[in-house]
Amino acid sequence: MIAGWIASGLLLAYGAMVALCLGLDRHYRQVWGIAATLGRYRLLRGVGWLGLSVSLLCMVAAWGWAMGPVAWIGALSVAGLVLTLALPWWPRMAVASAIGGPLLSSAVALAWVLG
């Protein structure tokens, strides 16, 4: 169960970073080849911040309120760097992997509610 929360937290951190990244014009163009509207950028960034918050909750679920935030900050850094290194070579795959976070965390949350 704890492993599930940790994995969710990590994957959600990554997904949130993807959203924040795509919310920047230069990276949206890098991945999709065209620009998006300001509204879409704002939406992406909003989703990103939301993802970061849920990621924090997952880390707190795994470790409590003292160690959880420490783990969360570390996860953000590593996730951000992994994304940054993956983007130039595998942009579509890097973005597609963002789905892992919401999927796993939903499953873990469901298991937690039902269990």
Binding site: A3, I6, A62, W63, M67, V70, A71, G74, A75, S77, V78
Partner: peptide
Amino acid sequence: GGYPLRWLYFVC
């Protein structure tokens, strides 16, 4: 924090 946090520190 156990091994998961230890690995996180190691990677960082």
